[in-house]
């Protein structure tokens, strides 16, 4: 029964991260537009985009290799597997033990590795530019993320996300300096990794500052649909991660009945909405950075993560 229950939760989880992901992006776009007193695209526009793209023919550059065609599916798969292992509404995921938080970060690293390769596959200057900058950001964002994971794991005594979430729900957590530092660091990393303002602008084309969009410039049709869906999935993954570790309220514990799970789903949708509004307000109120200011910005996250971990090494209560 428990196995069956956990399997159901796992499957629900896989759908629950995948299906609302485009909605989150649409919601952020809508809120941003409303903040600028524009009407904005309809909420469901990202779904329409994906459906339209999937039905179109894919144009592949003649200099591309097989890797170019395989990467969209690989990136999508790696991101989806990572997202399916972050608890969103319940902690009792069946396969939670198959990859811990470090492995989830590394899975996203695999996705980025292949996407950067795809950027270089066609052999255009834009693709190389995007890949090179993306990897430069990653050289700082990844250690920052690992240090934040260290501080969390040292507080919770585990790198398994389900266990971390359960610990964060328990009264043993208390208020800690290292948790606050970790939260700020994680938000910075999330902004950088998802190519949001001030690091990158998801809405630009033909601009030398673009990073993520430059990498995927040659993609079209179903390939582009998979890339877009992966990006949306990644955004909702980071929101789920922050919610699960720092705001785990509403997560249904292992073996709970139907009602707590329904409440958990409602709470998750609520958290997504709050995060979407917060991100939209933040992005509207800030300007994009020059590309060589970004390392300083991500460097802050690295230092915060290092500081949080150091505090944990020094004292059990900080």
């Amino acid at each position: 029964m428990n196995l069956f229950g956990n399997l159901t939760i796992q499957i629900l989880q896989m759908l629950l991260v995948l299906l609302p992901a485009p909605l989150l992006t649409g919601f952020i776009r809508k809120v941003k537009a409303r903040l600028l007193r524009k009407k904005g695209p309809p909420l469901l526009q990202p779904y329409r985009d994906i459906i339209k793209l999937v039905g179109k023919e894919a144009v592949v550059a003649d200099s591309a290799s097989w890797l170019f065609r395989a990467v969209p599916y690989l990136v999508f798969a790696a991101t989806w597997v990572a997202a399916a292992l972050v608890p969103t509404f319940a902690t009792g995921l069946l396969f939670s033990w198959s990859a811990d938080l470090i492995a989830i970060i590394a899975l996203l690293g695999s996705a980025r590795f292949f996407l950067a390769l795809a950027g270089m596959d066609v052999g255009t200057s834009f693709g190389g530019l995007g890949s090179s900058r993306e990897m430069m950001f990653a050289t700082l964002a990844e250690p920052a993320m690992i240090m934040i994971v260290f501080s969390l794991a040292l507080i919770a005594g585990s790198t398994q996300l389900s266990n971390v979430a359960e610990f964060m729900l328990s009264p043993a957590v208390g208020l800690r300096v290292s948790l606050a530092l970790g939260l700020i660091g994680l938000v910075i990393v999330a902004i950088a990794e998802n190519a949001r303002i001030p690091v990158d602008n998801p809405a630009t084309h033909l601009e030398l500052t673009m990073v993520h969009e430059a990498m995927v410039l040659e993609y079209s049709g179903r390939h582009l649909a998979m890339i877009e869906l992966s990006a949306e999935l990644k955004l909702s993954l980071y929101v789920s991660l922050i919610a699960c570790v720092f705001f785990p309220w509403g997560l249904a514990p292992v073996g709970a009945g139907i009602a707590p799970h329904l409440f958990g789903i409602a709470a998750y949708i609520g958290k997504l909405a709050v995060a979407g509004v917060a991100l939209a307000v933040f992005e509207t109120s800030i300007a994009k950075m020059r590309v060589f200011r970004v390392p300083d910005f991500i460097g802050v996250a690295l230092m915060l993560g290092l500081l949080a971990t150091l505090l944990r090494f020094m004292s059990g209560s900080l």
Partner: peptide, 28 residues
């Protein structure tokens, strides 16, 4: 997990949506 979900995604899209590709010069 990665191989099945990648193959599944590819199979579903190729079966139910479009599997037409066109080779063209790079857009850049």
């Amino acid at each position: 997990f990665i191989t099945t979900s990648a193959l599944m995604a590819a199979a579903i899209i190729h079966r139910f949506a479009s599997d037409v590709s066109r080779i063209a010069p790079p857009w850049d």
